[in-house]
Amino acid sequence: MKRLSRHLFQDCAATSLVTLGTLTFLIMLPQILLLTDVWINKGAPFSVLRQMILLAIPQFMVGTLPMALLTGILLTLNRMARDSELVIIKASGVSIWQMLRPVGLLVVLFTVLSLLLNWIWVPRAFFEFTTLKRALLTSSSALTLQPRTFNRDIPGLTLHVERQDPISGTLEGVLIHDQRNPKEVVTITARRAHPHTRADNKAALFLEDGSRHWVTQAGYYRHMQFTRFDLGLEVVLGLVPAHQKESVDELDPDELLAMLDQGTPEKRHAALLEWHRRLAFPAATLIMGALALPLGVRQSHRTGKSFGFAAALLILILHFLLLASGEALATRKFTTPLIGLWLPNLIMAALTAWAFHFGAQGRLAPDWRWPGSAAPVPDPAPPDPHGSMTR
């Protein structure tokens, strides 16, 4: 039994890990292409690109963990069924509850990994990723603007340039629309501009031969000609944390608890929703892994190769549709976060208990009959070709 448990655990773990890597890469591919575009067009260092890709991995693994676990277990059991290994295991008297021990160990490991991702690694990685992205888009070394295009990389600023020197970075034919102060919107034109860094490590544009237009709070139009003008972009350069944590996705558990206790009603609701979401997704991983076993052991050697993938896909679509719908209802306050995020898990847990109950009996569903109807009549035995014939 120990050898069987070791064999089952190793096969399920190997298939699940390969599936995890494949699914994570496929889902991350659009994000990798976007970061590659920033690397090519913005001139960002490759080391920064590599760090941003590594920081994005935990965010995507939160969703791919239950997918990989369910798919890996089903594919492994599907292969064992096609090779008649499941038939031999069942004929040896091994029950589904005995097979649950090695598979359950793998499910617990994946669930613990999901908890660590949701509570520790993802908030830190999301905060560092956002910091790197903001610093990258607003650093002078990455201030490569698309000519004859309205560039809005810097919040509150719209920049339009006719040409940029690829070597010196000098901008020519500059038009700037500054809305960072809603009470005093400014429009600036300049013949040329030179990006540079101030002593406080903030980005700025040194403008030459231009004009500045704005309307005061009293409603008066103002116009100013200048030969030289230094416009601060008010963004910190360098790849260091330069912004406060604004989203609940970036908060550590202690900060999330502080928001639950001291935040405004809107922030408390968002923090409560995030708290339940960080617990609901690991619970979904546990349920998906447990549901895979009774579905997998009911396969036979006649089952097609695509059965495991098709079954996993249908279950995943159902579960994540329920989770997404519940989270959307809780976000819009049509229901509480507790109900919105945990009712889908309760439904899938009931389905898992159903599958285990009938899977232990060698079937996945009861024999349905209308009340009062007779039991189904078994098929008659075939005639014996060597028997006697009656006249």
Rank of each mutant, 00 (worst) to 15 (best):
R3I: 15
R6H: 11
L8S: 09
A14K: 15
S16Y: 07
V18W: 13
L20Y: 05
L23R: 06
L26E: 09
I32Q: 06
I40R: 12
K42V: 03
G43W: 04
P45A: 08
P58A: 06
F60V: 15
A68L: 03
I89M: 07
S95F: 11
W97C: 08
P102T: 06
L105R: 02
L106A: 02
V107F: 02
V112E: 08
V122A: 02
S140H: 10
P155R: 02
G156Q: 05
L157M: 04
P166A: 04
H177W: 04
A203K: 11
F206G: 14
G210Q: 01
S211R: 11
Q217P: 01
Q225G: 05
F226R: 00
T227R: 14
T227Y: 04
F229V: 05
L231M: 09
L233Q: 08
G238M: 00
P241T: 04
A242M: 09
E246Q: 14
E250P: 00
L251F: 10
D252F: 11
T264G: 05
A270G: 10
E274L: 03
W275G: 00
H276I: 04
F281P: 04
F309R: 14
L316F: 13
I317S: 05
S325R: 15
A328L: 09
L329V: 03
A330Q: 01
T331F: 12
R332N: 10
P337D: 07
L351I: 13
R369S: 08
P382Q: 06
M389P: 13
